[in-house]
Nucleic acid binder design. Structure first.
Lengths: 185, 185
DNA sequence: ATAAATATGTTGGATATCCAACATATCCAA
DNA sequence: TTGGATATGTTGGATATCCAACATATTTAT
C-alpha cells in the first residue's frame, strides 16, 4: 500500500552509523563512545549524525530496537496470535538478544538497555492483545502489556542468572499455562 | 604547498567505485562488467559514476595507474635519481603489478592494460630524465622515456614468460649497466 | 533484417551530506 | 574555584549525490 521509496543515501548512512556504533561498542564502553568517534569510524560528518539521530541515546535505542526485532520471527507478526508458540518465540528472542548483547558489552548502561527491551516487548504485546480483545478498553490492555513485558524480561534475567543451563523454551514452558489463563476473555 | 582539501564524499565514492570494480574483476571478465554492475555493487547511483569517471575505460585506467604507483616505492620519487636502484625498483614494481593483475584476470583487455602500464612508466622515466639532463631538449628525453618504458615492459613480459623462475632483481641486473650507459651525458 | 531489450552517457531539479562557525555543556588539571 | 580543553547540538550556505527522463548505441532473439 504505502509504497514510499527512501533515498539510498539515507539507508547507507544510517547503516554506516549503526554498524560503526556496534563496532565501537565491542571495543569500549558505551559511556566512553563519543559522537565524534562514531562519525569518524563511519566516515561521515558529525552534523550528518544529527540529521539521522537526536543524540547518542537515540542511536542506542534504535540499534537495540532493530536488533531485537530482527531476532523476532516475522511469522509471529503475521498470524498475530498470542498462543504458546508466540510466548515461546518472544522469550527466545529476548534471551537471544541478551546473549548477543553480553558479548558486545555495553557496560555502564544496562538499565537503559533493559528499559528499551521492555518498551519493545510492551509494544508487541499491546498489539497482540488488541488483536485478541478488540472490545476491551485500551487502558487495561496497555497495563496488561506493561506487566507482561516486565514479566518476560524478568524471566530472561532470571534465566541468565542460572548461567543459561536450560534452553529458553524449556525454561519458560512451565509458566505458559498461567500466561494463557491470564489473557483469557 | 598546494593544500586543497577534497570533499570526503568524493574520496569515499571514488573508493567505493574502484573497490567494487576490483571486486567484480575477480569474478568476471572486464568485457562483461557494466557500469550498472559497478554502481550496484558500490551502492551508488549510475549518474554519480559519470560524475567521477568519463567511462569504464577511464575507470580502468585510473585503477591500474593508482595501483602501479602504490607498488612504486615513494623513496624513488624523493631522490629522483635514475641509478641502478631506481631501475631495479621500477622493474620490480612492474613485475609485482603484473602478477597481481594476473590473479585478478582482466581477460580480454590485456593490450589496453599494457598500454596503460607503459604510459605510466613513460611519465616516470620522463620526469627522472628531465631531472638528470635539464639542458637537453624535451623531445629527445620524451622519446628516450618512451623507449625505456617499452623496454622495461618488454622485459617484464619476458620475465613472466620464463614462469618467474628468477627473482626480478636478478633478471634485470645484467642489462642495468647498458641502461646506465644509455643515459650518460 | 527487424524488433525488443539492454547498456551508455547526459541533463535539471530535488535532496543528503559537508563544512565552518557558533553557543553550551561537561570534564579535568592547576 | 577557575580556566582550558573537549563534547554536544544547531545553523546556513556550498556541494555531491540521487532520480527520472531522454536520446543513442549495442546486444540479443526471432
Amino acid at each position: 500500500m504505502s509504497e514510499k521509496r527512501t533515498d539510498p543515501r539515507i539507508l547507507r548512512t544510517r547503516k554506516f552509523i549503526m554498524d560503526s556504533f556496534i563496532e565501537l561498542s565491542s571495543k569500549k564502553e558505551f559511556k566512553d563512545i563519543t559522537v565524534k568517534d562514531i562519525t569518524t569510524e563511519a566516515m561521515i560528518n558529525r552534523a550528518t549524525f544529527y540529521y539521522h539521530f537526536d543524540d547518542i541515546y537515540d542511536l542506542l535505542e534504535k540499534v537495540l530496537s532493530e536488533e531485537l526485532l530482527i531476532n523476532l520471527d516475522c511469522s509471529i507478526y503475521e498470524k498475530n496470535k498470542l498462543d504458546e508458540v508466540a510466548f515461546t518465540e518472544i522469550f527466545k528472542a529476548t534471551t537471544n538478544f541478551q546473549m548477543s548483547l553480553s558479548n558486545r558489552c555495553h557496560r555502564g548502561y544496562e538499565d537503559t538497555i533493559a528499559r528499551i527491551i521492555r518498551d519493545q516487548l510492551e509494544v508487541i504485546f499491546f498489539k497482540m492483545l488488541l488483536n485478541h480483545h478488540p472490545s476491551e478498553n485500551d487502558e487495561a490492555l496497555k497495563l496488561m502489556a506493561t506487566m507482561m513485558s516486565w514479566g518476560i524480561y524478568g524471566a530472561s534475567v532470571e534465566w541468565r542468572r542460572t548461567n543459561e543451563k536450560i534452553p529458553p523454551e524449556e525454561f519458560i514452558k512451565t509458566v505458559i499455562p498461567y500466561l494463557k489463563n491470564a489473557i483469557k476473555s
